[in-house]
Nucleic acid binder design. Structure first.
Lengths: 159, 159
DNA sequence: GTCTAAATACTCGGATACCCGCTGTCCGAGTGGTCCGGG
DNA sequence: CCCGGACCACTCGGACAGCGGGTATCCGAGTATTTAGAC
């Protein structure tokens, strides 16, 4: 899994902790965690396409959360960055080679058993991530370090 | 996830369906599903290192299952091919940049909340794969197409 | 003083190189089988 | 006929290229602000 996922989650959490609706520029967001500005900007565009962020151009522009943190799951973020493909990709090799040629019994309607089995793992992963909203992670973050919100606000020049 | 995982699972299943302990050469295993021989051989070596297969060199040599199919989980196969790393890699960017520098409150002992949250998804995925053994998939495969075992045996020149 | 309009500075957005890891291929090391010669 | 040794064919194992996607970077399109000028 690409680093962009970690970057996106932290960035979204920072925006959630700021709370207000003032846009924050890509440069500021990247500076918050010392990330390469231009590439991070590219990831933010992916989040905009996925409708997790809204962008406003021009001076005083930047990015805002498109929805409340309790309606954005970690799965949403992962899919926005990685694309909505599955972890395991079935190539249907069961239909190739000698075995594929000799195979005749099963009807072609049923999906490959290997595919089904691997997809069960995929579904478990997705459900676990979908169950966790940004607001949940934000709460945990606050429990670990109650001063984190103040720190973030200060890092972005608020207060 | 790399294709090698799909290849490895099908190959192990084929060996399980053959049942006997006669070694099968890398070339035959690859021909079973029309895979590139040399590269597939490379993957088989990974399975040997993970102690899922045993290899015997020389003429009449090849690969055999190292354990019973009911003691090999899909997770074992995935980790053997992909390495035992986690899906989500935490880079600790929370400690970098402006926010990292200003952050002081939380004790360094607790892991990043984002890391913990993502690892929950990782654990769910691993558990779902660990719960499914090769024998289970083999049974499903046999239900979908009762003639599959015969087909595989024939494809490998048995009977 | 106020309205208008142009210049400006700052932002996002997409097009362009770079690099690491999966993919694919090759050849060498090692082993068991086989064949030939001798007893 | 039986035994021993050398040859050989076949196997795995690791070392060597090729390519695609993530990574990183730059420059152009667009907009709100600012500012200068005219009324």
């Amino acid at each position: 899994m690409s680093k962009g996922v970690e970057w996106a989650i932290h960035t979204l959490l920072n925006l959630a902790m700021l709370g207000d609706d003032k846009p924050v520029g890509s440069a500021q967001l990247a500076a918050g965690h010392g990330l390469p500005v231009a590439y991070h900007n590219k990831q933010l565009q992916s989040l905009v396409k996925a409708e997790l962020l809204t962008s406003t151009p021009g001076p005083r522009g930047g990015f805002r959360l498109a929805r409340d943190p309790d309606s954005i799951s970690l799965l949403d973020v992962v899919l926005a960055i990685e694309g909505n493909g599955t972890l395991f990709r079935c190539t249907e090799i069961r239909q190739c080679g000698k075995i594929g040629e000799l195979s005749t019994g099963g009807d072609g309607s049923t999906a490959c058993a290997v595919k089904r089995a691997m997809y069960r793992g995929d579904v478990a992963w997705r459900e676990a991530l979908a169950a966790q909203k940004l607001s949940d992670v934000q709460k945990e973050l606050d429990i670990d370090d109650p001063s984190v919100t103040t720190t973030v606000r200060r890092a972005f020049g608020r207060d």
